[in-house]
């Protein structure tokens, strides 16, 4: 049977659509022109400028700090959630628990942002890095839990039974079998949480206070009020960083096998 070329053509067109804006952005970051009106020669001036913007560096530091803390906490809470959801899957409590973990994944970010803002305002918590951290942990828990749960569900159930059968108690089973086998899932969940936290704008914007600027908030205000070429340069740097991080983590996970 001859196959239609149509799906192939759509795929290629969409890939072009995906890459076009990003490529133009990267190219423009090396453009000496202040506006996007045309190519005026290769230049690294925007990158040099970027280094003299202390606010960007402060925002980056805030972002890293929050991402690291949110990843650590959400990894612990998300993993215990996944273990509970997996081990006691049939109980009524876990059905509620699953709903509770799952819903934040489908709720639009703005709703989570505004509801957390209402909580903090009512409770009189001062908005700042701490409230951002609390918000980030909240949405990261669900992503970590789902990643780890998927990994748990791939397990051969009898492996846990085998450990118990060989004399391992609850703690020994968890430490010697469950956690080591979960490690790739934990790494994946952790990376996901870290990226989500570093990237989040909407929720952060609602619960951030004065002086608690994160990198995405800084980027947003630059988009709104700043100079486009600077953003091009910053985006390119971020792009390269993410690429290396993802490539490294993939190589790492491949070599583990």
């Amino acid at each position: 049977m001859r196959r239609s070329r149509f799906p192939f053509i759509v795929t290629m067109a969409v890939l072009f659509f995906f890459y076009l804006p990003i490529i133009i952005l990267i190219v423009n970051s090396f453009n000496a022109s202040r506006f996007e009106s045309g190519w005026q020669g290769f230049s690294l001036m925007w990158y040099k400028r970027l280094f003299h913007e202390p606010e960007i560096w402060r925002a980056a530091r805030n972002s890293l700090l929050i991402a690291a803390a949110a990843t650590a906490v959400s990894l612990v809470i998300g993993t215990t959630a996944a273990i509970a959801l997996h081990r006691f899957a049939r109980s009524r409590l876990q059905r509620f628990h699953f709903g509770l973990v799952y819903t934040p994944l489908v709720v639009p970010e703005i709703l989570m942002g505004i509801s957390l803002l209402m909580l903090f305002v009512t409770a009189g918590v001062e908005l700042g890095l701490f409230t951002i951290f609390l918000a980030h942990v909240t949405f990261c828990i669900s992503f970590v839990a789902m990643t780890v749960l998927a990994r748990l569900q791939d397990f051969d159930e009898s492996i846990v039974e085998a450990a118990q059968d060989l004399g391992a108690g609850w703690w020994a089973t968890t430490r010697r079998v469950l956690l080591p086998m979960l490690l790739p899932g934990l790494i994946a969940g952790g990376l996901l949480a870290f990226t989500l936290s570093i990237d989040d704008f909407v929720i952060t914007f609602f619960v951030a206070g004065p002086g608690s600027t994160t990198l995405p908030i800084r980027v947003y205000s630059m988009i709104k009020y700043g100079s486009p070429p600077l953003i091009n340069a910053l985006s390119t740097i971020l792009l390269v960083l993410t690429f290396t991080a993802v490539a490294a983590s993939q190589r790492l996970s491949r070599s583990r096998h």
Binding site: V76, A81, L100, M112, S115
Partner: peptide, 30 residues
């Protein structure tokens, strides 16, 4: 078993109740 289940479920149940359910209720109240 029940004790074990509640212990393992507690952190996420607590956190998400406090930072997801309660805030949503606040939206309705406010």
């Amino acid at each position: 078993q029940k004790v074990r289940e509640s212990l393992v479920s507690f952190p996420s149940l607590f956190w998400l109740s406090l930072f997801f359910i309660v805030p949503t209720l606040f939206v309705f109240a406010i």
